[in-house]
């Protein structure tokens, strides 16, 4: 093999790929850090408080201070813990929260990997998130952590089913598994309008999938202390924390892509189309993320049997019915995408 082949064939694409990955991951981590700040500010506003306002102007340096604090702390591994699994669990959670962004398109063609089965990839990654939690709960060798992990596993598996049906409904309308094609199929009409009940089911299932309030039973502090990460400290805890916020942003991005038209402007006319696509996408993600915080500030926690009832007896039949209805409608009026 000639030396030029090696450079142009392998090395340069590899460097370009690494740079592209960094271009996604670094802003993402920054957004995740400031998502924690946004949560504290929004909750504070909802409760008529000020929130973080001491470190830096308007408390803007608070996330960095928190990160530095967690970085300086000591990592404690309990003596009864299974060390390898204990250390692997937070890494898994964090990595899974990051690799899902490989298929998220930010603008036409601006995507790390434009694969044919993008939406299935996202679904697969989000269904893997439960492993970090269940491994953490088991490896901690602690009753609270284990109970939290079991709750979380049952909850995430239950709500995945309705998320799957919602995705299939959207796929029926879009006629493609490719995420860019799904976004482009919403050029004329965002799916939130014809599929509004499905959008609501998706968002609520997303809350359950990310273990957020009002479905935060896996970490219910009143009965389980902190749930599955009760034994974690310092950076291992920080990885869980960042993973949870990255997952929330991911679910917000998925809601934007499936129902709010991704990077598309609300109306395809000049004053709206002047704003570039990534900014629309960011605004939509920010809106969905705000809804996450809004829900947290508003609703009390569900009881566990009510959570299961909602998942299996309400959302599953509803999404199944809506799926059949959508298919019947599209077939009857000859609107099936080819």
């Amino acid at each position: 093999m000639a030396e030029g082949d090696f450079w142009s064939g392998y090395a340069l694409p590899l460097v370009a790929m690494v740079l592209e990955i960094l271009a996604i991951v670094v802003p993402l981590l920054l957004v995740v850090a400031y998502a924690t700040y946004a949560e504290r500010k929004v909750l504070a506003a909802a409760q008529l408080r000020k929130g973080p306002n001491v470190v830096g102007p308007f408390g803007l340096l608070q996330p960095l201070a928190d990160g530095l604090k967690l970085f300086m702390k000591e990592t404690v591994i309990p003596s009864g813990a299974n060390r390898v699994v204990f250390a692997a669990a937070p890494m898994l959670t964090f990595v899974l929260a990051l690799i899902a962004w490989a298929v998220i398109p930010f603008d036409p063609g601006v995507v790390l990997s434009n694969i044919n089965v993008g939406i299935l990839y996202l679904f697969a990654i989000s269904s893997l998130g439960v492993y970090g939690i269940i491994m953490a709960g088991w490896a901690s060798n602690s009753k609270y952590a284990f109970l939290g992990a079991l709750r979380s596993a049952a909850q995430m598996v239950s709500y995945e089913v309705s998320i799957g049906f919602v995705m299939v409904t959207v796929l029926l309308c879009a006629g493609s598994l490719n995420i860019s094609d799904i976004v482009l199929a919403q050029r004329h009409l965002w799916y939130v309008i014809p599929l509004l009940p499905m959008a609501v089911v998706f968002f609520i299932s997303g809350l359950a999938e990310t273990n957020r309030s009002p479905f935060d039973l896996p970490e219910g502090e009143s009965e389980l202390v902190a749930g599955y990460f009760v034994e974690y400290s310092a950076m291992t805890f920080a990885l869980f924390f960042l993973g949870e916020y990255a997952n929330m942003i991911l679910v917000s991005a998925m809601t934007s892509i499936l129902f709010l038209g991704g990077w598309l402007a609300p109306f395809g006319v000049p004053p709206f189309t002047w704003v570039p696509g990534p900014i629309w996408f960011f605004l939509k993600i920010a809106f969905c993320f705000f809804c996450f915080l809004w829900v947290r500030a508003t609703f009390p926690r569900f009881r566990y049997d009510q959570l299961m009832r909602l998942g299996w007896k309400v959302f599953l039949p509803l999404s199944l019915f809506w799926l059949v209805l959508t298919a019947a409608f599209l077939t009857a009026f000859g609107m099936l995408p080819t």
């Binding site: 089965v117 679904f123 269940i134 995945e160």
Partner: peptide, 16 residues
């Protein structure tokens, strides 16, 4: 497609 279904069904549901 088969790869993703394998991950979703076996890893994401059965193995959990």
């Amino acid at each position: 497609f088969l790869a993703m279904i394998l991950v979703i069904v076996y890893v994401g549901a059965v193995a959990v």
